[in-house]
Design a protein around this nucleic acid. Structure first.
Lengths: 119, 119
DNA sequence: CTCATAATTCGCCAATTATCGAAATTTCAG
DNA sequence: CTGAAATTTCGATAATTGGCGAATTATGAG
């Protein structure tokens, strides 16, 4: 039960949901990209990522100075997680805020854009 | 997005999840039964029920002095809701607390038991 | 009509949580 | 080695949320 509540609590914050949707589009992102996307303090984003990881929704991979996060939807991941990820993607992929995030992500990822999106 | 966050926030409280699971077993319950099951103040349970209804997860039916609640899983209900209900039932039907709740519900519903379960 | 019961609404307090900034950690570039 | 950048941890603060009790509403029993 505790595990399950960790999961639902992880899904109950808008910024965390935005992170999950960003990862559903981009497969793998480093923290700095997510900082830019959300426009929050790095320490805040870090905490959100911890909660998502703790809930089993995402995994981390360290590469030099960077840490890359991705959705935990491997075949080995618990089906409970997979269903949750499927459910939210299904529910809000079309949401205006999520669509805007996708566009924003493109700009962030194109090396040209040094500045974050104005949001 | 606001609608979706109402949904995930509704699922992020243990007592609300217990209510949903109770309704998945009993089809329809009045507020007093849920008061007994959860052992919380009536006003607290009422607030939980409001949030669940507001999120679209349950519906209410008034009958005299009683109000009966049930899961919103009619064919007309949004599929988003149906999937959520399916997801949580799948995830924690076997949980010890939820199983205990089922047994407790039986006692509450049998007219003989005037007292609530000792929890 | 009057009273008791079921349920909700409201106002308050306690607990939790989101956020930030500062400090610490790790790693690479020079 | 030294310094800068990426990230996390920690401590403080503000906002949100869960919980209760008192007051309110609605309904049926006597």
């Amino acid at each position: 039960m505790l595990t399950f509540m960790n999961l639902t609590k992880a899904l109950s914050d808008e910024n965390r949901v935005r992170i999950l949707l960003a990862l559903s589009v981009k497969e793998e992102l480093c923290v700095c990209h997510l900082n830019d996307l959300l426009g929050l303090a790095p320490s805040t984003v870090s905490k959100h990522l911890f909660l998502l990881k703790n809930a089993g929704l995402i995994t981390a991979r360290k590469d030099g100075r960077w840490i890359y996060y991705r959705l935990n939807n491997d075949r080995e991941a618990p089906s409970l997680i997979g269903k949750a990820l499927e459910w939210i993607a299904d529910a809000i992929s079309d949401d205006p805020l999520i669509q805007a995030d996708r566009e924003c992500l493109e700009k962030i990822l194109s090396a040209a854009a040094q500045t974050a999106c104005g949001r």
